[in-house]
């Protein structure tokens, strides 16, 4: 019994981790008022970059960091479009979601002789308790270190938002950029930085899949997890702790899919696969409160404007 429970907890946490990273990324961008639905594309390029760098270098952490770098670079496109050119942020996000996977597959094709998947990596993200191959409870709870990193990131973001002056600035920029501007806060600079941060985080999220949960990049490794993380932010009511909890919930749904679908279960695997997505809709219907998004969300800021 305890065995199954610990297994469930572990798988839930493992599956939530990529979404936590992506969700935090989406959150920090949205908090400053920039809509970022491109996290899916940023996750994908991060997933690929992580796997590729790890394969060629043999070092998982190097891969992890490069994944963040890749996500951040892609985010520069979104930031430039949204902040400098002040274009429609949703459209720019869609463009990122097209360019990200496109670039990932293209470079993959170049590096891996025309294949659209990377070769499996030999060195994955280390586990918490190291290389033990114990069965039972300890073995079950021996999750990737990225799980812990994700949790620390969430906690760190909570501290940032609610206990530091940067957090106050961030929130002000998202709620009333003109007010922040009149007090000397550099609105667009802050937004730019946060969008890049969102790309870095999403990249980490991608790598936590290809270097942790599986061990390679394929065209379907990031299957909508970026979008699910956006939903998590929405009904976490745009808070770090809320988003973390919501991601856990979705991770739980995915864990169920894995656990029940593997064996001889009554529920067909395809129906199980639908679970996380149906759950998202149900939760949104039941729990979303209106009007909690940052007030200036989606509106580009022009100096001297009165809104």
């Amino acid at each position: 019994m305890l065995n199954s429970v610990t297994l469930l907890i572990a798988i839930t946490l493992m599956y939530s981790t990529p979404m936590v990273f992506a969700g935090l990324g989406n959150l920090i961008s949205e908090k400053t008022g920039v809509i970022n639905i491109g996290v899916e594309g940023m996750m994908t390029i991060g997933a690929f970059a992580g796997a590729a760098v790890c394969y060629f270098s043999g070092n998982a952490w190097l891969g992890f960091l490069c994944a963040g770098l890749a996500g951040g670079m892609l985010a520069v496109l979104h930031a430039a479009a949204s902040i400098v050119f002040q274009c429609d942020q949703t459209v720019s996000g869609i463009a990122v979601n097209l360019i990200g996977p496109g670039a990932a597959l293209f470079i993959c094709s170049l590096l891996f002789e025309g294949a659209t998947s990377t070769q499996p990596v030999s060195d994955k993200i280390p586990k918490i308790f190291g290389d033990i191959s114990a069965e039972g409870i300890l073995g079950n709870l021996n999750m990737d270190v990225t799980v812990v990193i994700a949790f620390l990131m969430a906690a760190g973001m909570w501290l940032l938002f609610y206990k530091t002056k940067w957090g106050l600035h961030l929130q002000a920029v998202g709620e009333h950029p003109a007010a922040a501007d009149t007090l000397g806060i550099k609105v667009n600079r802050l937004r730019f930085g946060c969008v890049i941060a969102s790309g870095v985080l999403a990249g980490f999220g991608g790598a936590s899949v290809t270097l942790g949960i599986v061990s390679q990049f394929t065209p379907i490794t990031i299957a909508g997890q970026g979008f699910i993380s956006i939903a998590a932010v929405i009904f976490g009511k745009w808070t770090p702790h809320g988003a973390y909890g919501a991601c856990l919930l979705f991770g739980f749904a995915q864990a169920l899919t894995v656990l029940l679908g593997g064996g001889e279960s009554v529920i067909p695997s395809q129906i199980l696969a639908m679970l996380p997505y149906i759950l998202t809709i149900v939760m949104l219907v039941l729990f979303v409160g209106r009007g909690v998004a940052p007030k200036a969300s989606g509106k580009p800021y022009e100096k001297g404007s009165r809104t």
Binding site: L168, H169, Q171, A172, E175, H176, A178, A179, A180, T182, L183, G184, I185, K295
Partner: peptide, 16 residues
Amino acid sequence: MLVERFTVLQNIILGE
């Protein structure tokens, strides 16, 4: 130029 969701104090010290 006040952030409605913030308190009076938060608005006053914002940036300082």
